[in-house]
């Protein structure tokens, strides 16, 4: 479950990065209200990124870093929640 969540959020991060530059508007010179269409895309995309980051901070903060679930101060004692699989010293 945690693993699935991690993969999902990683995918979201990759999409946010990949479309921050609107490649599909490459060479496009259209303007809307005096501002380039691709600049409007930029403004909208940053707004979307902000919403996505807010959702992450609300529902998934700690993922991949803290040893247990997303609940801020859950008192479970499991310590090996990281997916990196490193061995113990």
């Amino acid at each position: 479950m945690r693993h699935l969540q991690l993969v999902g959020w990683l995918a979201v991060a990759v999409v946010l990065c990949a479309l921050a530059i609107p490649w599909f508007l490459w060479g496009d010179a259209r303007t809307v209200a005096g501002i380039s269409l691709w600049l409007w895309w930029h403004i909208g995309w940053m707004g979307l990124a902000s919403v996505v980051f807010w959702l992450f901070s609300r529902y998934a903060w700690g993922l991949g870093i803290e040893p247990d679930g997303t609940a801020p101060s859950a008192d479970t004692s499991s310590t090996d929640g990281t997916d990196t699989g490193g061995d113990q010293p």
């Binding site: 921050a20 609107p22 691709w38 600049l39 930029h42 990124a49």
Partner: peptide
Amino acid sequence: GPEWVLVMGLMDGIIFAILWYVIGYK
């Protein structure tokens, strides 16, 4: 031309924000 703003958006608005969590929070 102003395309630099897209570079700034990607690097500061998104990549750095993600590192804010990945490096910063840890």
